Amino acid sequence: MQITASQVKELRERTGAGMMECKKALTEAGGDMEAAIEAMRKSGAAKAVKKAGRVAAEGQVVVAMSDDARKAVLLEVNCETDFVGKDENFESFAAAVAERALAEAPADLEALMALEIDGKSVETARQELVAKVGENVQVRRFVRLDSEGDRLGSYSHGVRIGVLVDIAGGDEELARDLCMHIAASRPVCVDQDQVPQESIDKEREIFSAQAAESGKPPQIVEKMVEGRIKKFLGEITLLGQPFVKQPDISVGQLLKEKGASVKRFVRYEVGEGIEKKAENFAEEVMAQVNAS
């Protein structure tokens, strides 16, 4: 029988499983929703579903780069503990997914999860990994860059921070130095032209209120505000920041000296933006005792 998109959507919402897994289960169950759910609970997918609600804020950021440095992927895969994040099965899975994303250029995360690694979909491999390591594992996000300049640079700080930078001019060493700077200094964007005007207006409003309390004349207050806005832009923009390896010059000055420019950059850090659950150890032990 014909399996509709709405059926697949409903099963995904009820189980938390992947699209391909849901479609397969519905097909095998002849479209019977409850039978599909029961079958998934009996299969390896059941363990993945049971763990889907756990907070996965550890893991790895992986970089995959083409030999000519013209294409690259930055990928974050999460798990629950640092221990599993260093597990060889987890590492192999993350690396394999990054390489597939580099080779196939999927349009989005759903397309990536449908790609095959070792004869099975990424989603199926993820669920099997969940069953093996006993933790929630999620492919959280990825970005694939095709260079708009002369080359891409990359840098990984352990497995927790990954950076890609797209530059025109310069050389491989400069590209790596820029990546290391971005990893350490966390710029928000390349230059002030990329800073949203509403962000600048908000900071100006805050600075104006602070400066007005000084009791100084309006013209002095205005100069104080403009000085703080300039400092703010210097702190959040790559070109305005002091270069970490040579703090007496800005990154913008460094690029000018090298005859280079930055087209764009991406910085991922494991778990950023994920709210980690604060655990009370005594309560956790008691919960385990009560459950036994």
Score class of each variant (00 low, 15 high):
I182W: 04
E13V: 05
L26Y: 11
E203H: 12
V8Q: 05
G259H: 04
C79I: 06
G44Y: 14
Q253V: 14
V139Y: 02
L233H: 01
P106R: 08
A98P: 02
A260L: 05
D118I: 01
C189N: 09
M65S: 03
I200F: 08
S121R: 07
R41Y: 11
A168G: 14
R54V: 00
A98Y: 00
A48V: 01
L11N: 12
E58C: 07
L239W: 08
K258N: 05
L255N: 10
A131N: 13
A105V: 08
E172G: 02
V55P: 08
A183N: 06
N136K: 11
E279Q: 12
K50G: 01
A114W: 00
I167M: 10
V97S: 03
V139D: 10
V63Q: 02
A212E: 15
V289C: 09
L26S: 08
K9M: 12
G259P: 03
R267F: 02
A72N: 03
E99I: 02
I249N: 03
I200E: 06
V61L: 11
R151L: 12
M19D: 08
D87H: 15
D118R: 14
V225L: 10
N290T: 04
P196A: 08
E104L: 14
F83L: 08
K23N: 10
A25M: 07
A57K: 09
P247V: 11
V163L: 07
A212V: 03
R186E: 13
L164M: 10
Y268C: 07
V63E: 09
V8R: 09
S43M: 04
E80Q: 15
L112A: 06
G170L: 09
D118V: 03
F83C: 03
Q127G: 15
A212I: 06
V221N: 03
H157G: 11
P196Q: 05
P106W: 10
R264L: 02
R70W: 01
C189Y: 05
R186Y: 13
K47T: 12
D177K: 15
V49Q: 15
A291R: 15
D177P: 00
M224F: 09
A101M: 12
